[in-house]
């Protein structure tokens, strides 16, 4: 409960401040519009040459694209700003003040910064997913719920990845270049990982697990995966969450001991 209460308190205050900068809304709308338009053009171009892409129909690819935009927006709005701030503070040596606060350090790092306008990407992406989903045959409540569960687990896995990437700031300087690498890899997630060669598919599944966040939920909606995949997804999510928590606590302890 405290997690939600604190998260909401931070979100409310930061959002109220960001709402004062309306020009950011215009820029974000423009950005989202361009992302959406180029995505639709790319899919249309693909389907002028082939009736399906490795078994994926146009509607299913729309779902993948919509999810790519929405998850990107969610990470950009809620996860990345906090991680960037944390890494900057570590580099400048000011992070330790956050450790004097009576809250879990990982929670605090995760809720201290938001970019509210980027949530527009979540709305735009969500609308594209909704449009694609209504055009896929046989999508009912059960499949929709399974899709949402898979997408939620995928987002959690990505968050955990960001947490682990962020802790590299304790060991190397200019760690934010890792985020640029993430951005580069994230672009590959706009297509289903199954269309890529094996090595890239492996990377997008196990190194930067975009497959869990985007392809797997889309496959769930298209009924390509059975309930077993959801259970497997849950196990992966729990394991990655535990691993990232372990990495975080270990890093914080190392930081406290080493900065004397």
């Amino acid at each position: 409960m405290r997690v939600l209460r604190l998260g909401w308190a931070y979100f409310r205050v930061i959002a109220a401040n960001e709402f004062q900068y309306r020009v950011n809304l215009v820029l974000q709308l423009l950005n989202s519009g361009i992302t959406l338009a180029t995505g639709i053009v790319a899919i249309s171009l693909v389907f002028t040459h082939t009736p399906d892409l490795s078994g994926w129909t146009r509607e299913e690819l729309l779902v993948v694209m919509g999810l790519h935009i929405a998850v990107g927006g969610l990470i950009g709005a809620l996860v990345r700003p906090g991680m960037s701030q944390f890494m900057q503070e570590v580099e400048e040596g000011t992070f330790d003040l956050a450790l004097t606060r009576p809250a879990d350090s990982q929670l605090l790092v995760s809720i201290r910064a938001f970019r509210v306008w980027q949530l527009i990407d979540v709305i735009v992406g969500g609308l594209v997913v909704a449009y694609g989903a209504t055009s896929i045959e046989g999508v009912g409540t059960g499949r929709l719920l399974a899709f949402l569960a898979a997408a939620a687990m995928g987002v959690i896995v990505l968050y955990c990845l960001w947490i682990m990437l962020a802790t590299t700031a304790f060991r190397i300087t200019r760690a934010d270049s890792i985020f640029d690498m993430f951005d580069g890899m994230y672009q590959a997630g706009r297509w289903p990982v199954s269309i890529y060669p094996g090595w890239l598919r492996g990377t997008l599944t196990f190194v930067i697990p975009l497959a869990f966040a985007i392809t797997v939920p889309a496959e769930t909606l298209a009924a390509r995966l059975g309930p077993g995949s959801l259970v497997l997804g849950l196990l992966v999510t729990v394991a990655v969450t535990a691993l990232s928590r372990f990495v975080w606590l270990r890093s914080i302890r190392h930081y406290s001991g080493a900065s004397a």
Partner: peptide, 16 residues
């Protein structure tokens, strides 16, 4: 918080 007015940061401290 660098970008927030102190009054808003005070509210966050109240919650924290």
């Amino acid at each position: 918080a660098w970008d927030l007015p102190a009054l808003d940061s005070f509210l966050l401290l109240k919650a924290l």
